[in-house]
Each structure stands twice: as structure tokens, then as C-alpha cells.
Design a protein around this nucleic acid. Structure first.
Lengths: 188, 188, 188, 188
DNA sequence: GATGAATGAGGTTTCATTCAT
DNA sequence: TATGAATGAAACCTCATTCAT
């Protein structure tokens, strides 16, 4: 597998995978993904050695994308609460804008196709947020909560929020704010 | 009279399904499930019309089991906090004792095999907890949080907790308690 | 398999087989036939040793029934044409009244489930018509047509007629008569 | 470019289907058909979306083939009797030369796998014979016989003839001729 | 005799992956 | 590199038949 000619094709395949998996679940057929991406079945395997690999790379891509959104305009010097709020609100913005992406991301996380390496790399991607999360963690560790619990809880609550915003899109802004307050009460 | 359909066999199939799905994901083969349950491939289909139905009934069974655990010894007349604590601690007890069951339950919930009816019935099962959750909801609705958000959040946080307890079983009791305090801060 | 208690049950199974095969083809499931007959799956096999046997007996029953209809009121002493006409008209009456029976009979004949013995016995049943058909055959054999061709042709033409009457039930009487005239021209 | 779907392989599958169905009936296994055709089980499904479709296309192919035989050297300008004779004799030639093909064709026709569209298309294929059959029909319609009865009768009689020629191959030529005379008497 | 759950071989179809073109 | 036909293991499910009750 030499350097790939066309990053566009790779992107097209990953995008198609999201759509197809959102529709059909993780058992979506590679042939259908390829078709939706506008490439031949065989071509998919020149970009990804196997379906498993495709799924792993897809997960990293989705994580990377959501982290990129959070990183954009991140107020590194603001107060802890302001920074936490930024994370909360920008992640939810992404999750609400691309419901299929979030849904597929969750499905992949819960499934058993993600290798240990993939999980480690996904974790590492969050390093930009580390100072913020680190500070929060520290306070909570002091309270007897385990390291990592903050992210896990935020993430879990965000999933819940996303579900609700999908049902009441008009209350979007309000929901994001009120739920942040709840999360903040829990973790600050 | 011929042999009667035995509840034991049904149970054996559901148990086998949990194990097999925990190991292989939702694409676990019906033949393997049957084998593990000690019945013939065809027998599985006299108890469940299709794999999809097996999965739906499995989900309801798991939900039913976890609700039964919560209901046991529920302190109907205690304070709201005491009641919330009972739910928190008894559910986590179940989730930690049967990690595969919880894992499979989550996988099913996130997947797309659950019919609308199954989801509705699962929801209805929680009615015993209603007074407690209802009280909590009311307070939170007043704050602009949507109805159902309490359960969703608790459930999401519990998933996070379970993950951590699995990694540090010795801190089990402490983790359950501290995380409850966090959840309580968020939702009371 | 001792003497069977209930000829009614046997009849019910055969009737159910006709309906089910008319609907589903020869691959109709024995379980469905039993269900439609109002007996248990196992019971079917106390009346017929195997599905193949059920099918063979069904064929003989259908033949027997249609021959019985023809034999009723057969004008043994009438002219050859009158006798041929009786056969033509009474058989078509049955075929039109019970389209499923005729259809299933045809399907069985064309299939490969009928044993040599069954075919021989079906042929033997027609013995009552022998004098009439024999006379017709004789004339035709003299013309270089093979023995048996008369029955085969009549039967083939009757199948065609039945099809057409089904589509134009109002012209029933006229069609039966005109087609007899055509058949008679061919074979007299 | 990848390999192109080869008409030879399609043909091989259809041929194999004829042999296998002649032997086993319509329940012949697709796997066996594929094996006999010298392709993998899966390959069959790249040429035919389902067994049902295979069966429908097979029927059309068989009809097409027999019509092609009839069309070859058709004496468009000869007398009605000469043209009818051509149809009679060339069809029977084909049916006798390929008994399995005829047998399978009949089984398909009687079965319930043929879609309405397939039946319509099969009918449309006979359009080349229309002038001839049309003339015959006209005469018979005048006599009160329904349109389409001529073809149906000829077809039904031909099936009977084929059966007899199979048993007495030596009398082939004579049987074909004598039976034509009988048919002609009936329909002219 | 009647019942219907149990059996497991066998059916059709899907699908990740390969490879000739 | 791109293509998509070819592959065949493996999936889900059916069903004739058996047999405990």
C-alpha cells in the first residue's frame, strides 16, 4: 500500500461508511459502502486493508474531527468554567450537527472492533484539552473519584443531551446551557 | 401431550446469547448460541421466531432483571435522597456483578435492532421507580431540563461508573458512593 | 400403522394439502398442512408415512374423485358421441368447480414425486370409461395414432378449456360445448 | 477493467439448471446447479439475483429458444395449413430433441414461480407466429371459441404428442404427421 | 392414537476479500 | 491503481421426521 493517490477517495469512503453504518449498523456491507462512495468494491481495499481497519480508522477520524471542533477557538487562558463550557458547547454543536457521525462513533466505541491501539490513540488525541480536564480531574480525584471519570461523565452526559436536543431542536441553546450547569455542579 | 416448551431452555438460550454476544458482538451466530445453550440450531427458532426477535426479547429480559434488582427492598417511604441512593447502588451492584449483561444491554440499546415496541416496553418497565424519578424530574424540569433527562443522565453516569469499577474492583464501594454524590449534586 | 381411527382426519389432511399446495406449490410444509387440517404435525405422519406418500395418495384421491364424477349417471348405452360428451362435460364441471384440485393434480402429474405404481393405479381407475375410450382409441389407432393418445389429448384440451372458463365464467356452457365439438372433430 | 460478466457462464448456469431441475424438480438446490455449471455457489447470484429470478429467466430462455426454432425457415407466404404444419413439426422437433428442456418448461409453467411479467413477456415472444395463429384464431372465434384457445390447444396437444414420441421414437415422423392431422381437423 | 417440541441436515443468500483484466 | 466478477465460508432459517409425554 504505497502513498495513496487520492485523499478525496479515502474521505469519500469514510463518509459513505458513516451513512451506511448509520443506516444498517456495523454489519453494513463493504460493497455498499464502496458503491455509495462511488468507487469499486476492490478499491476500498486499496485504501483500507480490511473492514476492521476501515472501522478503526473511521473511529479515529470521527474522534479527530470532534476534537478539532473543540480545539477551534479554545480559550486557553480563560477560567476553568469558561473552558469547560467551551468544550461542552462546541462538542454538542458538532454532535447535533452530525447526528450520524456521533451515532456511529458511539456504536464503534461500544462494539468490539476497536483495537487497544485505536483506543489508546483516541485517548491521546484529547491531549489539547488536558490542562482543562486535568484541573477538573485533580479536584475530583481529591474527592475520591478516579482519574478519567470527569471525561467519561461529561461524555456520557453529552450523549444524553444529544438525544434530547434531537427531539426538541428549538430548545437547543437552552438545553445545552442548563445541562452544562448540571454537569458543572456535579464536577466542579 | 407432547413435551412442553420449557422456560429453562428459553433461559438457557438467553444466557448463552449474553455470553456469545459479549464475546463476538451482535453478529454472534445463532448456531453458536444454540450450541452453547445445549440445544439444536433449530430449537432456538421454536423459542424465538428470528434472531431479531431473540435480540429484542433478550433486551427486555435484561432490563426486567435489572429493574427487579432495583425494586427489591426499595424504600418507598424514605427520603428522596435515600431512594435515589437505593437505585444508584442497587443498579450498579447488578451491573458490576454481571458485566456481560450490562455490556450486551448497552450494545443492544445503541444498535438498530430494537423495535419501537421493545423500546416502549422497556420504558414502561421502569414504572415502579416513577414516583422517585418523577420527583427528581419535576425539580429539574423546573430548571429547564427536559423530562426524562434525569434517568438518561443517571443511566449515562452509571455506565461510566461501571467501567471504572471494573478496572478498580477494590474501590468499588467508595466509587459507588462518591459518584452518587456527584450525580446528586447535578440533579437534586 | 393399524387401521386408522378417523377417516375424517385423513380427509381433512388431504383437503388441507390441496389448499396449501395450491397456495405454496409442492414445497408446502407438512406442518402447515397439518395446521390447516386442525391436527398436530405428528398426527399427519400417523396417516401418511411420509410427505411423498401423502402426495401420492393425494393424487390418487383427486383422480378417484374426478372419475367418480364422470361415472355418475354415465350413459353406458348411449352413442359413442353421447358418451364422449358426458365425459367431457362432467369432467370439466368438476375441474371448474374445484380449480385448486385440478391445479394440484396437474402439478403432481408434472412433478417427479409420483411413483410408477401410483401412475399405474391412476390409469387403472379409468377402467369404467374403457369401453368408450377403447372405441375411440380403436378408430384412432387405425389411423396411426398411438394407444392412449385419445385420453391424453382430451385431457390436454380439457386443461386448456378449464383455463379459459376460469377467465370467462359466463361463457362456461358455450365454451364447454364448442370445445367438445373441436375435440370431437379431431378424434372421432 | 475487471473481468466482464460472461454470457458463457450465464448459459452454463441455465443449462445446469435444466439438467438439475429435470432430475430433482423445482426444488433443485442452487448450490448443485452452480456446481454442475462449474462455478462457485456465490457466482450464481451475480448472474441471477435470486433463485426465483433464475427460474423466471430460465423460462424465458426456453421459450425464446423454442420460438427461435419455429421461426427458422418459417414459410411466411405458404398456405395456412403449410404454416401450421411448420409450427407443429418444428416445435415438436425441438421438444423431442431436448426432452429435459420441454419438461422443465412445463414444470415452470404449472408452478407458481412465474411472475405476471414473465408470463406476459413469454406471450409477447410468439408475435412472429401471430399472422398464422391469428388467422386460425379468427376462424375459431367465429365458432364461439375464445381467443387464445388455438395456441393453448396446440400447445396442450403437443405436450401429449411429445410424451408418446418419447416412448416410440421410431414412429416419430408418423406420429408427428398423424397428430397434426387430428389437430388440423379440430381447428381448421 | 395424538401431540408438538426437538432435531440437524440442508436450503438460499450474503459478504469480505482476491485477482484477472 | 482501479475495477468488479469470482469465490466459498458462513450466516439465518426451514422443514420432514422422530419421540417423549
Amino acid at each position: 500500500m504505497a502513498r495513496l493517490r487520492s485523499p478525496e477517495k479515502r474521505k469519500a469512503i469514510l463518509d459513505a461508511a458513516v451513512q451506511e453504518i448509520a443506516r444498517e449498523g456495523l454489519s453494513a456491507a463493504t460493497a455498499k459502502i464502496a458503491e455509495r462512495a462511488g468507487v469499486a468494491t476492490g478499491t476500498l481495499f486499496t485504501y483500507f486493508a480490511s473492514k476492521e481497519q476501515l472501522l478503526n480508522e473511521l473511529y479515529l477520524d470521527l474522534k479527530s474531527e470532534s476534537y478539532a471542533v473543540i480545539s477551534e477557538g479554545f480559550p486557553h487562558k480563560a477560567s476553568l468554567e469558561r473552558r469547560a463550557w467551551h468544550i461542552w458547547q462546541s462538542y454538542l454543536g458538532w454532535a447535533i450537527q452530525f447526528p450520524e457521525k456521533r451515532r456511529v462513533s458511539v456504536q464503534l466505541k461500544v462494539s468490539d472492533v476497536l483495537t487497544a491501539e485505536t483506543q489508546a490513540r483516541a485517548l491521546a488525541m484529547g491531549s489539547a484539552l488536558e490542562p482543562t480536564l486535568g484541573e477538573l480531574e485533580k479536584r475530583n480525584v481529591a474527592r475520591g473519584l478516579p482519574a478519567g471519570f470527569v471525561s467519561a461523565t461529561m461524555s456520557a452526559m453529552q450523549d444524553a443531551v444529544t438525544e434530547f436536543v434531537a427531539k426538541q431542536p428549538k430548545k437547543r441553546a437552552e438545553l445545552i446551557e442548563r445541562t452544562f450547569q448540571a454537569a458543572w455542579r456535579a464536577l466542579k
